[in-house]
Amino acid sequence: MGINIIITGVGGQGNVLAAKLLATAGLEAGWEVTVGDVFGLTQRGGSVASHVRLFKGYLLPPLIPCRSLDILVAFEPLEALRILTQFGRETTRAIINDQPVWPIGVQAGRFQYPEAQELHSAIENLTSKTAFINATRVAKELGNIQVLNMVMLGALYGSGWIPLSPRTFESIIQSSTSSQLRGLNIKAFRRGLKLKGSNLHI
């Protein structure tokens, strides 16, 4: 038994830290955990995805097999679609920050970013439940775009899709994020939690 989660986004959006904290929370809650990450070149504006697996029983590899995704947390909608086309299955649920970040090729006019309508329906076709939220706005309102990842994790906790307690997560933020951002991270996480009531239609 287990839960397969992918946190995806664009290099620099903070998925690595998000995955690390989420896995730590899983470990503290008594799960066996593994995180699959790759960094380096992809951090220069490329697609990034962290695989987080919470499980019990035999050891699992850090990579989630195709068609085995339970929960997708996407910091960017095109990246959400990219992951779903490979790892999605009928039961996959997703929380998506609906704020496109244009690939450099789109910016340079070599490619076309999909129309919002098209993108949304493609995503919905590949998920059982999808919540589109605007976490970027929340992070900006808080004054630092860097806390986007905490808003997203807040929304994940708020969804009730994972068997982990928000209270414990706050203590993990306390103990494992940089002192300058700690307070803001917790604020961001709480704002994310509350997104449930407003525009998280689950």
Partner: peptide
């Protein structure tokens, strides 16, 4: 749907 969706994907070059 997966096949349909793949058409929309544009690469994200570094």
């Amino acid at each position: 749907a997966r096949k349909q969706a793949s058409i929309l994907l544009v690469p994200r070059e570094v």
